[in-house]
């Protein structure tokens, strides 16, 4: 069992644990839990895409393909993620919490950043935009993690307080 746990990356374990704790506290399926699972899936897709493209970088014949596909794949998957959440919310008539709205707003911005950077790199290719891309994406990833774990932490505290009052 310990060997199996060791083979799973630490962030994956932490995200799974956070989602399990959140579901245990709220005891129902909320828009946040749907967004959390969708982010988990998107993270897996993006990691897979990144490994695939990085492995193709050494193939000169595919240089142009990987160059365009890098930005377009990340951008389009971000837009699909946002569209999927909004569609699901509309279909199920479940209102998105403020944190879920903030998360899909960040993903929409990241999708825009990918497409804007591709167009900008093909035309102007400024150093400022390179820095914004290089620093902005990890910064957004950190904000996403803070929002996810912060909201789970807030829910746990609220659950503990309400259970304590009920005693």
């Amino acid at each position: 069992m310990a060997e199996v746990l060791n083979s799973i990356p630490m962030p994956t374990l932490l995200y799974t644990a956070a989602l399990a704790i959140y579901l245990f506290c709220v005891k129902k399926f909320t828009s946040f839990s749907f967004v959390f699972v969708a982010i988990f899936a998107l993270n897996a897709v993006h990691l897979g895409v990144e490994y695939l493209f990085v492995s193709l970088f050494n193939t000169p014949q595919l240089a142009s393909f990987t160059y365009y596909a890098w930005y377009l794949t990340f951008g389009l998957t971000d837009f699909i993620f946002v569209g999927m959440i909004l569609f699901w919310s509309k279909q199920t008539n479940i209102q998105l919490e403020i944190v879920s709205k903030a998360l899909i707003g960040i993903y929409f911005s990241l999708g825009v950043l990918q497409i804007v950077r591709l167009v900008e790199r093909l035309t102007i290719d400024s150093e400022l935009m390179a820095i914004i891309y290089r620093e902005g994406i990890p910064f957004a990833n950190i904000v996403i993690a803070i929002l996810l774990f912060g909201y789970v932490f807030k829910t746990v505290i609220e659950s503990v307080v309400s259970n304590f009052r009920a005693l």
Binding site: I39, N43, R117, A130, I137, A140
Partner: peptide, 15 residues
Amino acid sequence: VSTHENGGGFEPEKP
């Protein structure tokens, strides 16, 4: 614990 999405800010070289 940060996610590693959108390529983590890495960019491919221009062809």
